[in-house]
Amino acid sequence: NQASVVANQLIPINTALTLVMMRSEVVTPVGIPAEDIPRLVSMQVSRAVPLGTTLMPDMVKGYA
């Protein structure tokens, strides 16, 4: 089972991601792979992401 990136806190719209905002977790459906966490740092979210939400490619500007 592949771990995905999950929000560790509420991430407001247009916030630049930092390591403390993200954790890896095995979830369904699968989201952005956990190994991409270093690449996500400083990228902005395109919408508010609630705590515990799996990050999907369309939620991060410039990821897809």
Score class of each variant (00 low, 15 high):
Leu40Pro: 00
Ile11Cys: 03
Asn14His: 08
Met21Leu: 07
Val30Phe: 06
Val26Phe: 11
Leu55Glu: 02
Arg23Lys: 14
Arg39His: 12
Val27Gly: 03
Ala16Ile: 06
Leu40Ala: 00
Leu40Tyr: 02
Leu10Ile: 14
Thr28Pro: 02
Gly31Phe: 02
Ser24Thr: 11
Val20His: 11
Pro12Asp: 13
Val41Gly: 02
Met59Gln: 04
Glu25Pro: 00
Met22Gln: 00
Tyr63Ser: 04
Asp58Trp: 07
Thr53Gly: 10
Met21Val: 03
Gly52Val: 02
Asn14Thr: 05
Val45Pro: 02
Thr28Phe: 07
Val20Gly: 14
Ala34Pro: 08
Lys61Gly: 07
Gln44Glu: 08
Ala64Met: 13
Thr54Trp: 01
Val45Arg: 00
Pro33Ala: 13
Met22Gly: 01
Ile11Arg: 00
Pro33Thr: 12
Lys61Trp: 05
Gln9His: 09
Asn8Trp: 03
Val30Pro: 12
Ile32Pro: 00
Val5Phe: 00
Ala3Arg: 05
Ser42Gln: 14
Arg39Cys: 11
Ala16His: 12
Asp36Gly: 06
Arg47Tyr: 10
Tyr63Phe: 12
Ser24Asp: 14
Val20Ala: 10
Val45Trp: 00
Pro38Val: 13
Gly52Thr: 02
Arg23Cys: 05
Ile32Cys: 03
Thr54Phe: 03
Pro12His: 06
Ala7Pro: 01
Pro29Val: 08
Asn8Pro: 01
Pro29Arg: 03
Met21Gly: 03
Val6Pro: 01
Ala34Lys: 05
Gln9Trp: 07
Ala7Ser: 15
Val49His: 02
Gln9Met: 13
Ile13His: 13
Ser4Gly: 05
Pro57Thr: 10
Ser24Ile: 12
Thr53Trp: 11
Ala34Gly: 15
Pro12Thr: 11
Ala3Thr: 12
Asp58Tyr: 09
Val60Pro: 00
Pro12Phe: 05
Met56Gln: 09
Asn1Trp: 11
Asp36Ile: 08
Thr18Gln: 08
Met22Ile: 11
Val49Lys: 01
Val41Gln: 05
Pro57Lys: 05
Leu55Asn: 01
Ser46Ala: 14
Arg39Thr: 08
Glu35Ser: 11
Thr18Ile: 05
Val20Tyr: 08
Val30Arg: 03
Ile37Met: 12
Asp58Ser: 11
Val60Cys: 02
Leu17Lys: 00
Ser46His: 14
Leu19Pro: 11
Ile13Thr: 09
Asp36Lys: 08
Ser4Leu: 01
Leu10Ala: 12
Met59Thr: 07
Ile13Cys: 05
Ile37Trp: 03
Pro50Asn: 14
Asp58Lys: 07
Met56Lys: 13
Ile32Gly: 00
Ala7Lys: 01
Lys61Tyr: 06
Met56Ile: 12
Thr28Trp: 04
Ser4Thr: 05
Val49Pro: 02
Leu19Phe: 14
Val27Pro: 01
Leu19Cys: 06
Asp58Val: 09
Val27Cys: 06
Val6Ile: 15
Arg23Gly: 09
Pro57Tyr: 06
Ser4Arg: 02
Tyr63Met: 07
Ser46Met: 12
Pro33Leu: 10
Asn1Lys: 04
Ile32Phe: 03
Arg39Ser: 10
Asn14Ser: 13
Ala64Gln: 14
Ser42Phe: 10
Thr54Arg: 03
Val20Asp: 14
Met21Trp: 02
Gly31Leu: 02
Val26Lys: 04
Val49Cys: 15
Met43Gly: 03
Val41His: 05
Ala48Gly: 07
